[in-house]
Design a protein around this nucleic acid. Sequence first.
RNA 1: GGCCCCAUCGUCUAGCGGCUUAGGACGCCGCCCUCUCACGGCGGUAACGGGGAUUCGAAUUCCCCUGGGGCUACCA
Length: 469
Amino acid sequence: MNNYQNKIRARFAPSPTGYLHIGGARTALFNFLFTKKNKGSFILRIEDTDLERSLEDSAEKILEDLKWLGINWDEGPDIGGDFGPYSQTQRLPLYHKYAEKLLKEGKAYYCYCAPEELEEKRKSALERKETPRYDGKCKNLTQSQREKLILDGRKKALRFIVPEKDIIVEDLIKGKVEFKKENFSDFIILKSNLTPSYNFAVTIDDLSMRINYVIRGDEHLINTPRQIMLYEALGEALPKFAHLPMILAADHSKLSKRHGTTAVGEFREEGFLPQALINYIALLGWSPSGNQEFFSQEELIQGFSLERVAKNSAIFDKEKLKWMNNFYIKKTLPEDLVLQIVPFLKKSELLKDNYDKKWLENLVFSFQENLNTLEEIVELSKDFFKEKIMLTPEALSLLNEEKSKNLLKVFKSLIQKEIEIIESNFKIIINETQKISALKGKELYMPIRAALTGNLHGLELAKVFSLLG
RNA sequence: GGCCCCAUCGUCUAGCGGCUUAGGACGCCGCCCUCUCACGGCGGUAACGGGGAUUCGAAUUCCCCUGGGGCUACCA
């Protein structure tokens, strides 16, 4: 086995209840960057204990999205590792082993309370404006009481006995966070269906996988004291904790489906490049020491540190993402870009299977700097796929002017002579047209543009010319 | 309700007691380039939530208020 003791080990542990969203991706990224920066191991673990909520192919999709983003792991469910298995449903015996240990040492007890009964108590506590706490009803049951409950058909769950002391979380990002003992009551570690509760499973997994840095979302800070209690009860050393600020929607609420695109897969479908997405989310909560905006993965790894992670939550701004995406699209080699764009054009049914490769390259190249997303090629270029053009009212009125008609006559006669319709020849023709018609600037170009595209706006005319062929 | 976290331009953020007339980026606006739209270049707009305290000096430290967020399960 490796010398894991002195190596940093951090993990990303998504639950397969949906697709990878932007917040999860950022958590994964920071774990990844942190481990790579420190020559440690990045571990991927699937938290699928809640069978009811786990979705069939969700875990696979998450893995796929992470790979697409270029976030690779050293150990995980698909590639294995020294501390497997890497999904919780396969680790059940392990949880039972530790649960038994706690039970034997008198640090846990069976609880026979019915869920409805507990729910009732919680409600009434809330009504009395008190913090709901388990009352310890089953803590000191006698043997005969226990037997009776079992005979009644009551199911049992295992509760952990919370120690009577305050817990201080030393968070690498938030600093010292103190929790008073009054806030805790004996909590379930093994559910009546014999699966572990979240806090228990996480703790057992993290300690058995020798995770020494737990970097996760802010929403877990509140869980941390319970996990610390478990570590201590089991006599295990604590990992370091770092809680990342959350990513919120523009209305300051938790990012969710109703806020539009939030899943990594959706961004991919809209034509965002993984480099852009990575670069953008890296800057959500983390900031470099200088003014640099664009980072390669290697630069992110080199520059990353938890000290430079912000405490406050960030709001997701798609406009800035688009700007960044545009930058990466412009940086992409044209021939590579064509490959990436073909699926978008095919999906929109503009592009048939037997397309002219040269022409398509020309098209993509012409629009490259205009694209914020790959998908935008569809809207921008659709007219070039059509036989007929639609005239906008402005274009129509311009074409009806006497000047325009004369100009176009000249232009038309010239292009009929010209053999090759390529960009460089456009200049020759336009110069010639200019000489004959004695028009220049707007008066020269606009009527031609209107006649060629039916619109007064668009691509550089020389490019339009070559694309129309 | 209780507990916890957070607070600099609309947004992402720099700032870790004097270097700050608060810096950069997106957005927005203007100018230049230009046949138009973009791209690009240049410039502009815009912020330390409020109140105390500490200090010679506070965006930076402390307290209170306010605001936002999270958690409050036999969900993860």
